[in-house]
């Protein structure tokens, strides 16, 4: 291979016997191999730097406190936790009744919340720590848009979420309806009730080991 480019003029200088040719080929292959290994080693720091900053969250307070007294019944407020929109709702008796209405479960993909989309203390029929207060991460499990909240009206007292992007629908507890593209229920963040009127997002008293990174999909 290395003989290809050798000019006729210098053939007198390098006595290329059969053994000589093979030794050169080995040297050329080893050189190319070591060169490739070097290029890979060089690529490492550049690609590694794309992983971003290390330990940037260490020591940072990762919790958000929400004052519930400002939320009227049937309404919700939106706060930001870890950069995600989090819906905090105060549910009316009619809304809670709609969650347990006969036949409602048949329209849902995962009515029992079997798929890991919430901490253990929210794996219940109302998908929250206390029934009256619902907390959901407002990111559609289809392709990540923020669903809009349809407040309860005289015609439909249950209320629901509808995603503007591709028509996914969720009930008031964030459970995905069948016949719509979203595959999973809306995620529930770790929540602790600090008092009657305050809750803390980012910390779960009932499921301390819960890590939002481990859920099925956000």
């Amino acid at each position: 291979m290395t003989q290809d480019g050798a000019p006729t003029s210098s053939s007198t200088q390098c006595s290329s016997g059969k053994g000589g040719t093979r030794r050169r080929d080995v040297l050329a292959t080893v050189t190319a191999g070591v060169g490739c290994a070097g290029a890979c080693a060089l690529a490492y720091p550049f690609l590694d730097s794309l992983n971003g900053t290390r330990n940037s969250r260490v020591g940072e307070d990762d919790t958000v406190d929400v004052d519930l007294s400002a939320i009227p019944p049937g309404q919700q407020t939106v706060v930001t936790w870890r950069g995600w929109p989090v819906f905090v709702q105060r549910r009316t008796a009619a809304m809670l009744a709609s969650l347990q209405a006969p036949g409602a479960a048949q329209r849902l993909r995962d009515p029992e919340s079997k798929i890991l989309q919430q901490p253990k203390d929210a794996t219940n029929w109302h998908r929250s720590v206390v029934p009256e207060i619902g907390v959901l991460i407002g990111i559609c499990t289809h392709l990540g848009c923020v669903p809009s909240y349809d407040t309860p009206s005289p015609a439909d007292q249950s209320g629901k979420y509808a995603c503007p992007c591709h028509g996914s629908q969720f009930d008031i507890a964030g459970r995905a309806y069948k016949n719509a593209p979203a595959p999973y229920n809306l995620p529930v963040p770790p929540v602790t009730m600090v008092s009657e009127t305050h809750l803390r997002i980012g910390l779960s008293k009932g499921d301390p080991d819960f890590d939002i990174a481990n859920i099925q999909q956000i």
């Binding site: 490492y44 720091p45 550049f46 590694d48 730097s49 794309l50 900053t53 290390r54 330990n55």
Partner: peptide, 28 residues
């Protein structure tokens, strides 16, 4: 350039971040 911020208030801090926090940033 992926980790640098060209503003007076943040340029110096972003270089320090590259050196101390970005993975292999010191090497790059």
């Amino acid at each position: 350039a992926l980790n640098y911020t060209p503003t007076v208030t943040e340029a110096f801090a972003s270089i320090e971040m590259i050196d101390r926090q970005v993975s292999s940033g010191w090497l790059v």
